[in-house]
């Protein structure tokens, strides 16, 4: 069972080719959707929600066809748009209750669920106040509650942490991680790569309407087996000498840091021995791993090159 899948999906707006042949199959779980502006992320989400019809190609969400089973899909997905999306005059409770009713819940169910999801996103007394006075973080959490009220199996989040302060982002990210744990698939479209790296198991990188790369984050950012960065304070020259004696190559050094290459896997002990011999203090040993940003930039570069 896939969360969603597309086969050769294209979408054209006039002369603009927003999607060109997207073929993708995404397993359930928390998935990051990355790409520069104009990469086609929003169009993809819009097609998956059945709000936009694709020009050609097939797409299915939770095994349902996006052309013919739109309403069935929308009963089982939740969407948190990037914009405010509030309805003036409604309180937080009223807003979530309303969206619950729109999804087809009965009065009682909707009321119960409203308070349940508002508890979940930690909107306390504020839920009875008009939403116009909410802060950015509260609005984001309210929008998340709105998307969760009918207990979807798949959640689309468009820039859920944009413009939020660090605490707000922290809260939002832990909510997303928890949802993944509860068995809800989440597609997070975001420009904030550190946030995606923190919560997502998989990423899809898009650019120019195509899928450039997709896969598990931990596989993309596997720590390097032999390349290490060493934080060392003490006699630098002695340290380098000791390292070289143990056939550890020093690649680069910059204020208090040494980039080294071990002779083979599993020989980190050589660095410790060197540090002990050199008599300084080893305060960090970090395997080199490519950050999501590097992976992302590399994917874009490959596209531009080709």
């Amino acid at each position: 069972m896939t969360a969603f899948a597309c086969a050769n999906l294209t979408k054209r707006y006039g002369s603009i080719q927003a999607l060109q042949g997207v073929t993708l199959s995404v397993e359930p779980g928390v998935v990051g959707l990355l790409g520069p502006n104009g990469a086609g992320k929003s169009t993809l989400i819009s097609v998956l929600l059945g709000q936009t019809l694709a020009t050609s190609g097939e797409a299915s969400v939770l095994g349902l066809d996006t052309r013919r089973q739109q309403r069935a899909i929308r009963r089982r997905v939740g969407f948190v748009p990037e914009n405010d999306c509030l309805i003036p005059g409604l309180s937080g409770t009223g807003y979530v209750y309303y969206t619950g009713r729109l999804a087809g819940m009965s009065h009682g169910d909707s009321m119960q669920r409203t308070h349940e999801v508002l508890d979940y996103v930690a909107l306390d007394e504020a839920r009875y106040r008009p939403t116009e006075g909410y802060s950015t973080g509260m609005k984001q959490r309210l929008k998340l509650a709105q998307a969760l009220v009918h207990d979807p199996d798949l959640l689309f989040l468009d820039e859920p942490t944009n413009g939020m302060d660090p605490q707000g982002r922290q809260t939002m990210l832990s909510l997303i991680a928890d949802l993944g744990g509860a068995g809800i698939s989440v597609l997070v479209s975001s420009h904030l790569l550190p946030d995606v790296q923190r919560v997502c198991e998989r990423v899809v990188i898009m650019g120019g309407g195509e899928v450039l790369s997709s896969g598990r984050i931990d596989e993309m950012n596997k720590p390097h087996a032999t390349l290490y960065r060493v934080d060392y304070s003490g006699d630098r020259i002695a340290m380098k000498r000791e390292l070289q004696q143990r056939s550890v190559t020093v690649l680069d050094e910059a204020n208090g840091r040494l980039d080294v290459e071990l002779p083979q896997e599993g020989t980190q002990a050589k660095v410790m021995e060197a540090a002990r011999q050199a008599g300084g203090r080893l305060s960090g040993l970090h395997p080199k791993r490519s950050s999501l940003e590097e992976t992302f930039m590399a994917a874009l570069q490959r596209q531009r090159g080709s």
Partner: peptide, 12 residues
Amino acid sequence: HRALPIYFAKPV
């Protein structure tokens, strides 16, 4: 308030 996506992400 760009609230239309809220409606059309639900079965409306």
